[in-house]
Design a protein around this nucleic acid. Structure first.
Length: 238
DNA sequence: AGTACCACCTGACGGC
DNA sequence: TGCCGTCAGGTGGTAC
């Protein structure tokens, strides 16, 4: 493997990473929220670490034969002559090692992944949370995997104002948020792996102040919630 | 408990 | 043409 920019390693030593991976193979992967874990083959198995990847906002993987992507930061070379690049223009991503996904999740206090969650457990997560619905969705220690865009999308599709208190949502609204969030995430995974775009009816395609709401004809407004730029419909999310 | 604000980083974009 | 400020995003820290 080659490290083209050490800033992506987040403090992990390049030599340590290389020693853990060189001559090994990738055995399987596990995703939790925004984190991707790759099991490194080894004998005995108990000693093998996991490769941990976080994609920040501009991170991605590219499997290629000849031309590396422009912003490749780490490149894994395979014995079939192909390469896997971790690319990340803005360097917010991380490539490092962890003993196991469970260890990483515990150390970083990540909440459950919404796609592995059931409605009753989701209800329990919201109970007693007086903060904004958007803040709750985005808090990785409550639920792992929802960022700014998908938080806005979920609230838009469920007609909930981003500042509504999480524990003030009705039972019906909580169920709608749960179902909608899971559908959005599962759909995004499915479409993005096929290289498809989000549907035109999604807010994510219309994040601009003054745009017409595709759902109700209202006007898209902009404000800051939980420190992040937030777009919402002033009419149906009023 | 909840939020605000900053730093990290870089390309795009608007203003002059 | 080119410079400068601003913005976007995720996370992790400190401050209130």
């Amino acid at each position: 493997m080659r490290v083209l920019d050490e800033r992506i390693l987040g403090g992990t030593r390049k030599a340590v990473l290389a020693r853990a991976l060189t001559g090994k193979s990738f055995e399987r992967t596990h995703r939790h929220g925004k984190h991707l874990f790759v099991k490194v083959e080894d004998r005995p198995p108990s000693l093998s670490p996991w490769l941990h990847l976080h994609f920040g906002m501009s991170g991605d993987l590219a499997y290629y034969e000849h031309e590396p992507p422009r912003f490749a930061r780490v490149i894994f070379d395979f014995d079939n002559g192909w390469h896997l690049a971790f690319e990340d223009m803005r360097l917010f991503g991380v490539v490092d090692l962890t003993p196991s996904p469970e260890a990483y999740i515990a150390e970083h206090r990540l909440g459950p992944d919404p796609l592995e969650l059931r409605l009753p457990a989701f209800r329990r997560l919201l109970a007693g949370r007086r903060g904004a619905a958007k803040a709750l969705l985005m808090s990785q220690d409550v639920i792992a995997g929802v960022g700014n865009l998908y938080a806005d999308e979920t609230l838009y599709q469920t007609s909930i104002h981003p500042r509504r208190a999480a524990d003030a949502l009705s039972e019906r609204e909580v169920a709608q948020v749960f179902t909608t969030l899971r559908r959005i995430l599962a759909g995004a995974i499915d479409r993005k792996t096929r290289g498809a775009d989000h549907p035109a009816r999604y807010l994510i395609q219309h994040r601009e102040e003054g745009e017409r709401c595709r759902k109700c004809g209202g006007t898209i407004l902009r404000m800051v919630v939980f420190g992040r730029t937030t777009y919402y419909c002033g009419k149906h999310q009023g």
